[in-house]
Computed example of a mutant assay.
Amino acid sequence: MFQLVEFLSRNRNFILFVLLETLSFWLIVQSNSYWSATYFNTSNYYVAKALTLSNTVREYATLREVNADLAAENVRLNTLVTQLQQQRAVDAPPNYQPDSLFSARFTYVVAKVINNETNRANNYITIDKGTLDGVQPGMGVISATGVVGKVRFCSEHFSVITSILHAQFMVSTRLVRSDEIGTAKWPGKSPDFIDLIDVSRYKTVEKGDSAVTSNLNAVFPPGIMVGTVENLTVRPDQTFYDISLRLSTDFRNMSYVYVVKNQLRPQLEELQKRLETERR
């Protein structure tokens, strides 16, 4: 208390000056309509600026929660789209009616990317979901924009994904306009492009055509974007096109991915094993 009194006593002249200046300013604003309007317009402007800055900071602070909510919503939408695609397949005959369990066989688990490689010959991605979340090796992984890769290893809380940017990763891919099926395989160069091989040169392929996962996938739902045709060439001695796809997924800026669960995959693998046994 003594220090406060001492401070006021030592600075009394300055405090009196500030009070008189404030009183003078208030009297001018109250008695003059021009300065009154100017004061309120100016104060409203700076108050609005302060509120805008405050809202911006608050929105930035909640971006993590917003992204998580959007990722969860994408899971629901992906499940719904996949079911509709299976029920209304473009190439299905009119009287074809898929089994309800078959059309709903794909479900999704949202995961956050915690490590991502793009500059190696064989690239891997690490996510924050593992066996405790139902993730198993061999499951497909997609993003909101397209194919990402396939689960390679799992622990209880983490999983390592073989990225599509891997020399040994291949995915059956269909060109939407030409309805031709080939295999997408990364040539080990730019993380923005992937090759599409085994597409016959005698089929019409156009630049800009969309490439999506085909129906010949047990790992990925059909219709998931892989990329778009960027360049295509064919040499006289070749049977197939040389096609370069621009990947639909930006691997340098991935935050969330979706692990694809095929509920019927164990049955399919069991049948494949029995078939291989019969062939031996």
Score class of each variant (00 low, 15 high):
Ser200Tyr: 11
Arg105Met: 06
Phe102Glu: 14
Pro222Gln: 07
Ile127Lys: 00
Tyr46Gly: 01
Leu70Cys: 14
Ser200His: 12
Gln83Gly: 15
Val135Gln: 02
Tyr256Ile: 09
Ala48Arg: 08
Glu230Ser: 13
Leu271Val: 08
Tyr124Met: 05
His157Phe: 04
Lys203Ser: 04
Asp192Thr: 05
Asn11Pro: 01
Ser255Leu: 14
Phe106Asp: 02
Ala68Trp: 12
Ser9Pro: 00
Glu180Phe: 09
Val171Gln: 08
Val234Lys: 03
Lys112Arg: 06
Gln86Trp: 12
Arg12Ser: 05
Arg246Trp: 06
Ala104Asp: 05
Gly223Thr: 04
Glu269Ala: 15
Ala121Tyr: 09
Lys273Leu: 11
Gln85Pro: 00
Val113His: 01
Asn67Ser: 07
Asp179Gly: 10
Glu230Asp: 11
Ile224Gly: 00
Asn74Gly: 11
Arg252Phe: 11
Ser103Met: 11
Ala89Glu: 04
Ile114Lys: 06
Pro98Asp: 15
Leu70Pro: 00
Leu16Ala: 04
Val199His: 02
Pro266Leu: 07
Leu271Trp: 14
Ile114Thr: 05
Gly182Cys: 06
Lys261Gln: 11
Lys261Ser: 12
Ser255Tyr: 10
Leu264Ser: 05
Ser31Thr: 15
Asn123Pro: 00
Asn262Tyr: 08
Lys273Ser: 13
Thr42Ile: 10
Phe251Arg: 06
Ala72Gly: 13
Val148Gly: 01
Val66Gly: 01
Asn215Trp: 15
Phe2Ile: 08
Ile164His: 01
Met139Tyr: 08
Ile194Trp: 05
Ser54Cys: 13
Ser159Gln: 03
Glu59Phe: 02
Ala121Lys: 10
Gly130Ile: 09
Ile243Asp: 02
Tyr241Met: 02
Phe251Ser: 03
Phe14Asn: 14
Gly223Trp: 10
Lys207Asp: 12
Val219Asn: 01
Leu27Cys: 10
Val113Trp: 02
Gln238Thr: 08
Pro94Tyr: 13
Ala218His: 04
Arg252Pro: 00
Lys129Gly: 02
Glu73Tyr: 11
Asn231Gly: 12
Ser190Asp: 06
Val212Gly: 13
Cys154Tyr: 01
Asn41Met: 07
Ile194Thr: 02
Lys273Gln: 04
Ile142Gly: 00
Ala48His: 08
Gln263Tyr: 14
Ala68Leu: 12
Thr131Trp: 15
Leu20Met: 14
Asp198Gly: 00
Arg265Asn: 03
Thr79Gln: 15
Phe251Cys: 08
Pro266Ala: 12
Pro236Lys: 13
Pro93Leu: 14
Gly134Phe: 14
Glu206Val: 13
Arg174Ala: 04
Val160Tyr: 07
Asn122Trp: 05
Asn74Ala: 12
Leu216Met: 10
Leu245Thr: 06
Thr145Val: 11
Arg12Gln: 07
Asn231Gln: 07
Asp250Leu: 08
Asp242Gly: 04
Thr239His: 15
Thr249Phe: 04
Val109Ser: 10
